[in-house]
Simulated scan of single mutants.
Amino acid sequence: MLDVSKNAVGFNLKQLRTTKGLTLDQLASQSELTRGYISLVERGLKTPSVNALLRLAAALDVNVTYLFDPNPTPAPRYTLFRQNEQNAPIQEDGFDLIALAASRTRKMMEPFVIRPPLKSAPRASHAGEEFLFVISGKMAIKFEDEEIILAKGDCLYFAGETPHWVRSIGKTKADVLLIVSATSPQKP
């Protein structure tokens, strides 16, 4: 089973960065993240957001799931995720994040289940497109000058480059299927 702890992600990130011969400053420049932030992630002191994972993977020219498991077994023609086999979600800034197809390499979509925080999460924007489908609860997504409320069964598709903030509405966090697309298949 996949270890998605922040320590595993940080360890895998550092291994990949050093294997590629990149300094923290070079990776920070390429990913548009700060050197300090990346250092905290590598040391397991900070869990990267979805946005940060996408930026780091793009800068390192790998699939996001490589950061979770750099040595996946060759994937069959499908990847199966069973609810009862999941690890604890990664938690960052009030978000819960579960990678759904982490063992699949060379894919054009990155599927997750997210549980947005009850207060607004940090602003996100990234390359590609984004699809949200509310499984349970209610959530709000705010663009620069507009806020959209989504309830169970609602979905929203938009350009990931559009700056956006999300939050759950109510007393419990919403469960939301998040699919982020890449512009082309990422390398394993």
Rank of each mutant, 00 (worst) to 15 (best):
K6Q: 15
A8T: 14
G10E: 03
F11K: 13
N12M: 06
N12W: 04
L16F: 08
L16Q: 12
T18V: 15
T18D: 06
K20L: 14
K20F: 09
G21C: 11
T23R: 08
T23Y: 08
L24R: 06
D25I: 11
D25F: 07
Q26C: 04
L27P: 01
L27F: 07
S29M: 12
S31Y: 08
E32M: 13
E32Y: 11
L33D: 01
T34I: 11
R35M: 10
S39Q: 13
V41N: 04
R43E: 12
G44Q: 05
P48W: 05
S49N: 07
S49Y: 03
V50F: 01
V50G: 00
L53P: 00
L53Y: 02
A57Y: 00
N63R: 04
Y66Q: 02
D69P: 01
D69S: 13
D69H: 09
P70G: 05
P70C: 08
P72Q: 04
P74F: 09
A75H: 06
R77A: 07
Y78F: 14
L80K: 10
R82W: 05
R82Q: 14
Q83H: 14
N87Y: 04
A88D: 12
A88H: 10
P89N: 10
P89Y: 08
E92L: 07
D93K: 14
D93V: 11
F95I: 05
D96C: 05
L97F: 12
I98A: 01
I98E: 00
A99T: 03
A99W: 00
A99I: 02
L100Q: 06
A101E: 05
A101M: 10
A102C: 08
R104I: 02
R106S: 13
K107G: 07
K107V: 11
K107L: 05
M108G: 13
E110D: 15
E110Q: 15
E110P: 01
F112L: 12
K119M: 14
P122E: 08
P122F: 06
P122N: 10
S125V: 01
S125P: 00
H126K: 11
H126N: 11
A127Y: 06
E129Y: 10
E129I: 04
F131T: 04
F131Q: 05
L132T: 00
L132F: 15
F133L: 15
I135N: 10
S136L: 08
S136N: 15
S136K: 14
S136R: 12
G137C: 10
K138P: 01
M139T: 03
A140H: 13
I141P: 00
E144W: 05
E146A: 13
E147I: 15
E147Y: 07
A151N: 15
A151H: 14
A151M: 09
K152D: 09
K152T: 15
G153T: 11
G153Y: 12
F158A: 06
A159T: 13
G160N: 06
G160P: 02
E161Q: 14
E161P: 01
E161R: 12
T162G: 01
T162Y: 04
H164I: 02
H164K: 04
V166M: 15
V166W: 00
S168H: 09
S168I: 06
I169V: 15
G170W: 12
T172A: 14
A174G: 07
V176Q: 03
L177I: 09
L177G: 03
L178E: 03
L178S: 10
I179R: 03
I179N: 03
V180A: 12
S181K: 07
A182F: 03
T183R: 15
P185N: 10
P185S: 10
Q186P: 00
K187H: 07
K187F: 03
